[in-house]
Design a protein around this nucleic acid. Sequence first.
DNA 1: ATGGGTGCAAAGTGTTTGCAAGTAT
DNA 2: ATACTTGCAAACACTTTGCACCCAT
Lengths: 129, 129
Amino acid sequence: MKQQRNTRQRQLVLAAVRARCDHPSADQIYLDVRAIDERISRGTVYRNLNILVQQGEVLQVKLPHMDRFECQSDKHYHLLCQGCGAVCDVHLPYYAELDEQAAKKTGYTIERHRAVFEGLCPNCRNKKI
Amino acid sequence: MKQQRNTRQRQLVLAAVRARCDHPSADQIYLDVRAIDERISRGTVYRNLNILVQQGEVLQVKLPHMDRFECQSDKHYHLLCQGCGAVCDVHLPYYAELDEQAAKKTGYTIERHRAVFEGLCPNCRNKKI
DNA sequence: ATGGGTGCAAAGTGTTTGCAAGTAT
DNA sequence: ATACTTGCAAACACTTTGCACCCAT
Protein backbone atom coordinates (compact mmCIF):
# COMPACT_ATOMS: atom_id res chain seq x y z
CA MET A 1 0.00 0.00 0.00
CA LYS A 2 1.33 3.36 -0.94
CA GLN A 3 2.36 5.96 1.60
CA GLN A 4 -0.64 7.92 2.78
CA ARG A 5 -1.20 11.32 4.25
CA ASN A 6 -3.40 12.34 7.07
CA THR A 7 -5.34 15.25 5.70
CA ARG A 8 -7.86 17.37 7.51
CA GLN A 9 -10.57 15.99 5.22
CA ARG A 10 -9.68 12.39 6.01
CA GLN A 11 -9.76 13.14 9.72
CA LEU A 12 -13.17 14.73 9.36
CA VAL A 13 -14.55 11.69 7.56
CA LEU A 14 -13.21 9.28 10.17
CA ALA A 15 -14.52 11.48 12.99
CA ALA A 16 -17.94 11.58 11.35
CA VAL A 17 -18.10 7.79 11.14
CA ARG A 18 -17.05 7.50 14.79
CA ALA A 19 -19.55 10.10 15.90
CA ARG A 20 -22.46 8.03 14.68
CA CYS A 21 -23.89 4.97 16.33
CA ASP A 22 -26.25 4.04 13.56
CA HIS A 23 -24.78 2.80 10.31
CA PRO A 24 -24.64 5.82 8.05
CA SER A 25 -24.47 5.71 4.28
CA ALA A 26 -21.67 7.43 2.44
CA ASP A 27 -23.94 10.31 1.65
CA GLN A 28 -25.05 10.74 5.26
CA ILE A 29 -21.40 11.00 6.20
CA TYR A 30 -20.90 13.51 3.43
CA LEU A 31 -23.72 15.62 4.84
CA ASP A 32 -22.35 15.38 8.38
CA VAL A 33 -18.89 16.44 7.30
CA ARG A 34 -20.37 19.08 5.07
CA ALA A 35 -22.02 20.64 8.14
CA ILE A 36 -18.54 21.23 9.55
CA ASP A 37 -16.61 22.03 6.39
CA GLU A 38 -18.88 23.36 3.73
CA ARG A 39 -16.19 23.17 1.08
CA ILE A 40 -15.55 19.42 1.16
CA SER A 41 -16.72 17.55 -1.91
CA ARG A 42 -18.61 14.30 -2.30
CA GLY A 43 -15.74 12.82 -4.26
CA THR A 44 -13.36 13.43 -1.38
CA VAL A 45 -15.67 11.83 1.14
CA TYR A 46 -16.19 8.75 -1.03
CA ARG A 47 -12.47 8.51 -1.76
CA ASN A 48 -11.58 8.76 1.91
CA LEU A 49 -14.19 6.25 2.97
CA ASN A 50 -12.66 3.77 0.56
CA ILE A 51 -9.18 4.46 1.87
CA LEU A 52 -10.32 4.10 5.48
CA VAL A 53 -12.02 0.81 4.66
CA GLN A 54 -8.82 -0.41 3.01
CA GLN A 55 -6.82 0.66 6.05
CA GLY A 56 -9.21 -1.24 8.28
CA GLU A 57 -10.28 1.85 10.21
CA VAL A 58 -13.82 1.66 8.92
CA LEU A 59 -16.05 -1.27 8.11
CA GLN A 60 -18.25 -1.35 5.04
CA VAL A 61 -21.59 -3.12 5.39
CA LYS A 62 -23.04 -4.24 2.07
CA LEU A 63 -26.79 -3.87 2.05
CA PRO A 64 -29.59 -3.57 -0.48
CA HIS A 65 -29.64 -0.18 -2.23
CA MET A 66 -26.36 1.08 -0.80
CA ASP A 67 -23.47 0.41 1.48
CA ARG A 68 -23.30 1.59 5.08
CA PHE A 69 -20.29 2.29 7.25
CA GLU A 70 -19.27 1.93 10.88
CA CYS A 71 -16.03 2.02 12.81
CA GLN A 72 -14.10 -1.19 12.72
CA SER A 73 -14.52 -3.60 15.62
CA ASP A 74 -14.83 -7.34 16.10
CA LYS A 75 -16.64 -9.44 13.56
CA HIS A 76 -20.34 -9.25 14.21
CA TYR A 77 -23.66 -9.52 12.44
CA HIS A 78 -26.14 -6.93 11.31
CA LEU A 79 -29.87 -6.58 11.51
CA LEU A 80 -31.92 -4.74 8.94
CA CYS A 81 -35.44 -3.59 9.67
CA GLN A 82 -37.47 -4.20 6.55
CA GLY A 83 -39.96 -1.55 7.61
CA CYS A 84 -37.86 1.55 8.21
CA GLY A 85 -34.46 0.53 6.88
CA ALA A 86 -32.71 0.93 10.23
CA VAL A 87 -29.57 -1.11 10.70
CA CYS A 88 -28.14 -2.25 13.99
CA ASP A 89 -25.45 -4.53 15.30
CA VAL A 90 -26.40 -7.95 16.63
CA HIS A 91 -24.34 -8.88 19.65
CA LEU A 92 -24.14 -12.57 19.07
CA PRO A 93 -20.83 -14.39 19.12
CA TYR A 94 -19.23 -14.86 15.70
CA TYR A 95 -19.67 -18.48 14.68
CA ALA A 96 -16.18 -19.30 13.48
CA GLU A 97 -17.16 -22.97 13.12
CA LEU A 98 -19.33 -22.00 10.18
CA ASP A 99 -16.23 -20.88 8.32
CA GLU A 100 -14.53 -24.20 8.93
CA GLN A 101 -17.59 -26.14 7.87
CA ALA A 102 -17.99 -24.10 4.71
CA ALA A 103 -14.31 -24.58 3.90
CA LYS A 104 -14.64 -28.33 4.31
CA LYS A 105 -17.78 -28.44 2.16
CA THR A 106 -16.51 -26.32 -0.69
CA GLY A 107 -12.74 -26.58 -0.79
CA TYR A 108 -12.46 -22.79 -0.74
CA THR A 109 -10.21 -20.93 1.64
CA ILE A 110 -12.66 -19.04 3.81
CA GLU A 111 -11.67 -15.80 5.40
CA ARG A 112 -14.94 -14.91 7.06
CA HIS A 113 -18.66 -14.72 6.62
CA ARG A 114 -21.07 -11.85 6.92
CA ALA A 115 -24.64 -12.30 8.03
CA VAL A 116 -27.57 -9.93 7.81
CA PHE A 117 -30.74 -10.67 9.73
CA GLU A 118 -33.96 -9.39 8.25
CA GLY A 119 -37.02 -8.56 10.25
CA LEU A 120 -39.08 -5.83 11.83
CA CYS A 121 -38.14 -3.54 14.68
CA PRO A 122 -40.68 -3.23 17.50
CA ASN A 123 -41.94 0.06 16.09
CA CYS A 124 -42.59 -1.22 12.59
CA ARG A 125 -44.08 -4.44 13.92
CA ASN A 126 -46.71 -2.47 15.79
CA LYS A 127 -47.52 -0.37 12.75
CA LYS A 128 -48.09 -3.43 10.59
CA ILE A 129 -50.46 -5.23 12.94
CA MET B 1 -50.64 -8.38 -5.76
CA LYS B 2 -52.28 -7.47 -9.02
CA GLN B 3 -53.23 -10.00 -11.60
CA GLN B 4 -50.25 -10.96 -13.70
CA ARG B 5 -49.77 -12.29 -17.17
CA ASN B 6 -47.48 -14.91 -18.44
CA THR B 7 -45.78 -13.27 -21.37
CA ARG B 8 -43.24 -14.78 -23.68
CA GLN B 9 -40.64 -12.38 -22.32
CA ARG B 10 -41.30 -13.39 -18.71
CA GLN B 11 -41.00 -17.06 -19.65
CA LEU B 12 -37.70 -16.38 -21.38
CA VAL B 13 -36.32 -14.61 -18.33
CA LEU B 14 -37.35 -17.40 -15.98
CA ALA B 15 -35.96 -20.02 -18.36
CA ALA B 16 -32.67 -18.14 -18.53
CA VAL B 17 -32.33 -18.09 -14.74
CA ARG B 18 -33.12 -21.80 -14.55
CA ALA B 19 -30.68 -22.63 -17.34
CA ARG B 20 -27.75 -21.28 -15.34
CA CYS B 21 -26.09 -22.98 -12.43
CA ASP B 22 -23.86 -20.07 -11.48
CA HIS B 23 -25.51 -16.99 -10.04
CA PRO B 24 -25.96 -14.64 -12.96
CA SER B 25 -26.38 -10.90 -12.66
CA ALA B 26 -29.38 -9.18 -14.19
CA ASP B 27 -27.30 -8.10 -17.12
CA GLN B 28 -25.97 -11.60 -17.76
CA ILE B 29 -29.55 -12.80 -17.90
CA TYR B 30 -30.36 -9.97 -20.26
CA LEU B 31 -27.55 -11.08 -22.54
CA ASP B 32 -28.66 -14.72 -22.39
CA VAL B 33 -32.23 -13.84 -23.25
CA ARG B 34 -31.04 -11.42 -25.87
CA ALA B 35 -29.26 -14.28 -27.61
CA ILE B 36 -32.65 -15.93 -28.10
CA ASP B 37 -34.83 -12.88 -28.66
CA GLU B 38 -32.81 -10.02 -30.01
CA ARG B 39 -35.68 -7.57 -29.59
CA ILE B 40 -36.12 -7.85 -25.81
CA SER B 41 -35.08 -4.78 -23.89
CA ARG B 42 -33.07 -4.38 -20.69
CA GLY B 43 -36.01 -2.73 -18.97
CA THR B 44 -38.21 -5.73 -19.62
CA VAL B 45 -35.64 -8.15 -18.23
CA TYR B 46 -35.14 -6.07 -15.09
CA ARG B 47 -38.87 -5.62 -14.64
CA ASN B 48 -39.51 -9.32 -15.02
CA LEU B 49 -36.71 -10.30 -12.68
CA ASN B 50 -38.28 -8.10 -10.02
CA ILE B 51 -41.69 -9.61 -10.60
CA LEU B 52 -40.31 -13.16 -10.45
CA VAL B 53 -38.51 -12.35 -7.20
CA GLN B 54 -41.73 -10.97 -5.77
CA GLN B 55 -43.57 -14.09 -6.88
CA GLY B 56 -40.96 -16.24 -5.19
CA GLU B 57 -39.92 -17.94 -8.42
CA VAL B 58 -36.46 -16.41 -8.33
CA LEU B 59 -34.15 -15.57 -5.45
CA GLN B 60 -32.17 -12.35 -5.37
CA VAL B 61 -28.73 -12.51 -3.76
CA LYS B 62 -27.48 -9.14 -2.59
CA LEU B 63 -23.77 -8.82 -3.17
CA PRO B 64 -21.18 -6.09 -3.52
CA HIS B 65 -21.44 -4.20 -6.82
CA MET B 66 -24.63 -5.86 -7.98
CA ASP B 67 -27.29 -8.37 -7.23
CA ARG B 68 -27.27 -11.92 -8.54
CA PHE B 69 -30.15 -14.27 -9.18
CA GLU B 70 -30.92 -17.98 -8.91
CA CYS B 71 -34.00 -20.14 -8.91
CA GLN B 72 -35.77 -20.30 -5.61
CA SER B 73 -35.03 -23.19 -3.29
CA ASP B 74 -34.50 -23.72 0.43
CA LYS B 75 -32.75 -21.12 2.52
CA HIS B 76 -29.04 -21.53 2.11
CA TYR B 77 -25.83 -19.57 2.25
CA HIS B 78 -23.59 -18.20 -0.47
CA LEU B 79 -19.90 -18.13 -1.04
CA LEU B 80 -18.13 -15.37 -2.91
CA CYS B 81 -14.65 -15.84 -4.31
CA GLN B 82 -12.78 -12.62 -3.73
CA GLY B 83 -10.42 -13.43 -6.53
CA CYS B 84 -12.65 -14.07 -9.54
CA GLY B 85 -16.07 -13.00 -8.27
CA ALA B 86 -17.62 -16.43 -8.67
CA VAL B 87 -20.57 -17.17 -6.45
CA CYS B 88 -21.71 -20.59 -5.34
CA ASP B 89 -24.15 -22.15 -2.95
CA VAL B 90 -22.94 -23.51 0.37
CA HIS B 91 -24.73 -26.68 1.30
CA LEU B 92 -24.76 -26.23 5.03
CA PRO B 93 -27.95 -26.51 7.06
CA TYR B 94 -29.71 -23.23 7.72
CA TYR B 95 -29.13 -22.28 11.35
CA ALA B 96 -32.62 -21.34 12.43
CA GLU B 97 -31.42 -21.02 16.04
CA LEU B 98 -29.51 -17.92 15.02
CA ASP B 99 -32.77 -16.23 14.16
CA GLU B 100 -34.22 -17.04 17.56
CA GLN B 101 -31.12 -15.84 19.34
CA ALA B 102 -31.04 -12.61 17.39
CA ALA B 103 -34.72 -12.06 18.13
CA LYS B 104 -34.11 -12.55 21.83
CA LYS B 105 -31.12 -10.21 21.83
CA THR B 106 -32.68 -7.39 19.89
CA GLY B 107 -36.43 -7.53 20.38
CA TYR B 108 -36.94 -7.50 16.63
CA THR B 109 -39.17 -9.95 14.83
CA ILE B 110 -36.72 -11.91 12.71
CA GLU B 111 -37.84 -13.45 9.50
CA ARG B 112 -34.54 -14.87 8.34
CA HIS B 113 -30.86 -14.21 7.92
CA ARG B 114 -28.63 -14.27 4.90
CA ALA B 115 -24.97 -15.18 5.09
CA VAL B 116 -22.22 -14.70 2.57
CA PHE B 117 -18.90 -16.42 3.05
CA GLU B 118 -15.86 -14.70 1.64
CA GLY B 119 -12.74 -16.49 0.54
CA LEU B 120 -10.75 -17.82 -2.37
CA CYS B 121 -11.66 -20.64 -4.70
CA PRO B 122 -8.96 -23.30 -5.27
CA ASN B 123 -8.00 -21.70 -8.57
CA CYS B 124 -7.50 -18.21 -7.21
CA ARG B 125 -5.72 -19.53 -4.13
CA ASN B 126 -3.11 -21.16 -6.33
CA LYS B 127 -2.62 -18.01 -8.35
CA LYS B 128 -1.99 -15.92 -5.26
CA ILE B 129 0.65 -18.15 -3.69
C1' DA C 1 10.29 19.40 -3.94
C1' DT C 2 7.37 15.88 -4.67
C1' DG C 3 3.72 13.04 -5.09
C1' DG C 4 -0.53 12.09 -2.64
C1' DG C 5 -4.93 14.80 -1.95
C1' DT C 6 -8.56 18.14 -3.07
C1' DG C 7 -12.65 20.33 -5.42
C1' DC C 8 -15.24 20.26 -9.27
C1' DA C 9 -17.82 18.45 -12.77
C1' DA C 10 -18.29 14.92 -15.99
C1' DA C 11 -18.62 10.12 -16.74
C1' DG C 12 -19.76 5.38 -15.11
C1' DT C 13 -22.57 1.60 -13.53
C1' DG C 14 -26.57 -0.73 -12.47
C1' DT C 15 -31.47 -0.07 -12.25
C1' DT C 16 -35.96 2.17 -12.73
C1' DT C 17 -39.56 4.62 -15.18
C1' DG C 18 -42.79 7.50 -18.45
C1' DC C 19 -44.92 6.83 -22.55
C1' DA C 20 -47.25 5.21 -26.64
C1' DA C 21 -48.08 0.95 -28.83
C1' DG C 22 -48.83 -4.08 -28.30
C1' DT C 23 -50.95 -8.27 -26.39
C1' DA C 24 -52.73 -11.90 -22.95
C1' DT C 25 -56.85 -12.71 -20.86
C1' DA D 1 -62.45 -4.59 -24.23
C1' DT D 2 -59.44 -4.16 -20.52
C1' DA D 3 -55.43 -3.32 -18.30
C1' DC D 4 -50.99 -5.57 -17.90
C1' DT D 5 -46.58 -5.51 -20.77
C1' DT D 6 -43.38 -4.15 -24.02
C1' DG D 7 -39.49 -1.46 -26.30
C1' DC D 8 -37.30 2.62 -26.13
C1' DA D 9 -34.87 6.21 -24.19
C1' DA D 10 -34.45 9.26 -20.62
C1' DA D 11 -33.96 9.59 -15.80
C1' DC D 12 -32.19 7.89 -11.39
C1' DA D 13 -29.21 6.80 -7.44
C1' DC D 14 -24.89 5.94 -6.03
C1' DT D 15 -20.03 6.00 -6.97
C1' DT D 16 -15.78 6.79 -9.48
C1' DT D 17 -12.59 9.56 -12.11
C1' DG D 18 -9.82 13.18 -15.00
C1' DC D 19 -7.79 17.30 -14.28
C1' DA D 20 -5.48 21.32 -12.60
C1' DC D 21 -4.29 23.18 -8.38
C1' DC D 22 -2.95 22.42 -3.43
C1' DC D 23 -0.53 20.93 0.66
C1' DA D 24 1.46 17.30 4.05
C1' DT D 25 5.67 15.30 4.43
